[in-house]
Write a protein that binds this DNA or RNA. Structure first.
Lengths: 346, 346
DNA sequence: CTGAAAGCGCTTACAG
DNA sequence: CTGAAAGCGCTTACAG
């Protein structure tokens, strides 16, 4: 299956690939025509479609997307750059993006920054080298170079997860600050007065920090005590949530409610409380953020803020595709909002 | 930022991109040299590296990976084709793959077949068009054309999740049949005699079916009653697990143990049992498959089979990279095995 | 509806 | 350690 080609100044052994040219020869048409049959079948006669289709079949031709991308200066690939894959939130967003991209014939190129903005910058540089049709990237916060790079790039960019002004191009997300504030209001309205916050890596996960800040604002509004967050450095998990919960109660026995940075932690706390015989919400109330299904099943069920995760991915992908296809994509910035889901835990 | 180029038979408006040539001019060297500095910096003098590096900086040059891939007939991209993104198992596998690929400088191209082998075939055809360096694909079962396509392809392929003979190339996984058998043996040894199985979409998710078959074999060995599986058509979730659990007990009150196709379902059943006041394992034992962390936190803790998911991804990626770099990758086929984790639920 | 020519931005395989 | 020439497999922008 391998042939050696000899030409002046060149001698290479490449696997004998079936190319557009071979298909064209077989079908007795020009390569251009084959290209058309493949890319814009509607602009071509039925007879041609059939003739070329047969040649494609017989030769087992696989279009070389790389060559196509180089010639057209655009590939049907969309990088999705997220800070983490261990957080189910991003998985659901990716799912939403993937669903929509697939239907439109685009491929998803996965980038994981691990909450590191420098890594994000390197990743963005590499991924832009693929001439993608557009980019979806988590967050509004980037290095100056990343921003400059994406801004200078002349293709659609959607920043997701948080909603704000000053987006590079398009933006789909919600206000984490308002979400934290809303949870604060809920807890206060339920009569809780000694309210704490548990969350990890708040420097990197600044959206979680915004939720904390929102909570703080709400507490300040009611003249309640604002405590520093109980933090940790490992990635969130139910196990960690349970441990952090016990530590926090130990350190601050006066706490009567805890807002967790996410549902993973909060669900872990509820399960741990159950095991330890700590009454929730009687001894201490527990609240989360995300709205994962499991929160409705644990006992007591979890009060949490539901973010429309999959929807964020879908909207972002749809806006991207609209713009890539030259259609209008609606408002540049979309606030998808959030919902407070009150469970038994508060 | 856009220039119009006029040449015989051609007139296009393309954004003015900085290319290798521009960098070469700026640095006063040839494009080949720039290419070397970028791709094999060790094979180049310190002075050159600096000179070229400066030009790259000044011009904000981003290497065009598409052109590179076309010229070298290989891209530093690896498609990972999985049947689902809503199943955490595949997420963890993807995480493992991603970690390893990133370090080696490869990008992950995500493919989701939605448990549809025809879609898998189309996806594989498209993704091979990207001249990837290798392919990771879930399962040993594919359409004949997919198999033929991957077999004819002259680059490394790793089939993951299940272990078996007759792999296309390399294989990393475990025997789901043996896992089901092992769980059967465990349940029988605990004294359970009326053992059921709950799992969905067993035709598509044939690995879950293998676990059921393994259970059946174990039951047959002990002369115990083999029941048809309780199935459903929606995707697995704790919510669904709880519902299916109630339905199964309703339909077959004599059940004294249930093996769930996965931990999502089993955890849901445990939480539901708790709400309904059904004693686990006294009234009915519950077992799962996966080994997710949450299973250790629910009450009673879940007996399950732990599959090394992240490890599967890592091993697969490492084998791929070894082969792509021309190194030996060890055995073509790796059985990663599984562990029975006995909790309080059996 | 169909085709000839040129070019996309790199890398390869030599020679020096 | 460095460079000139050719080519990777497509698509674009015309003309017919």
């Amino acid at each position: 299956m391998s042939e050696t080609i000899n030409r002046p100044g060149r001698r290479i052994a490449r696997p004998a690939t079936v190319t557009l040219k071979h298909v064209a020869e077989r079908a007795g048409v020009s390569p251009i025509t084959v290209s058309r049959v493949i890319n814009t079948p509607d602009a071509v006669s039925e007879a041609l479609r059939e003739k070329v289709g047969r040649a494609v079949e017989e030769l087992g031709y696989l279009p070389n997307r790389v060559a196509g991308a180089l010639a057209s200066a655009e590939s049907r690939v969309v990088p999705v750059i997220v800070p983490s894959l261990s957080n189910a939130v991003f998985i659901e967003v990716i799912q939403g993006v993937q669903e929509v991209l697939e239907v439109a014939g685009y491929q998803l190129l996965l980038g994981n920054t691990q909450y590191d903005l420098q890594r994000e910058q390197d990743l963005a540089a590499t991924l832009l080298g693929w001439s993608p049709a557009g980019v979806i990237i988590a967050g509004l916060r980037h290095t100056d170079r990343t921003r400059a790079m994406l801004q200078a790039w002349r293709r659609p960019v959607v920043e997701i997860m948080e909603h704000g002004t000053r987006a590079i191009d398009m933006n789909v997300g919600l206000s984490h600050y308002k979400a934290g504030d809303a949870m604060g209001e809920h807890l206060v309205s339920r009569g809780y007065r000694e309210i704490g916050f548990i969350g990890g890596r708040l420097k990197a996960d600044y959206r979680a920090l915004h939720r904390y800040k929102g909570l703080e604002r709400s507490l300040a509004r009611h003249g309640l005590r604002r405590r520093p967050p109980f933090t940790h450095e490992s990635k969130s998990s139910p196990q960690l949530g349970g441990d952090a919960f016990m530590r926090a109660l130990d350190a601050s026995p006066d706490l009567d409610a805890i807002f967790f940075a996410n549902d993973d932690l909060a669900v872990g706390a509820i399960l741990r409380a159950q095991r330890e015989g700590i009454a929730v919400p009687k001894r201490v109330a527990i609240a989360g953020f995300n709205g994962f299904g499991i929160g409705e099943l644990v006992q007591p069920s979890l009060t949490t803020i539901v973010s429309p995760r999959q929807q964020i991915g879908q909207i972002a992908a749809n806006k991207l595709i609209a713009r890539m296809q030259g259609r209008e994509s609606g408002a540049a910035s979309v606030d998808v909002g959030f919902t407070l889901r009150v469970g038994e835990s508060t």
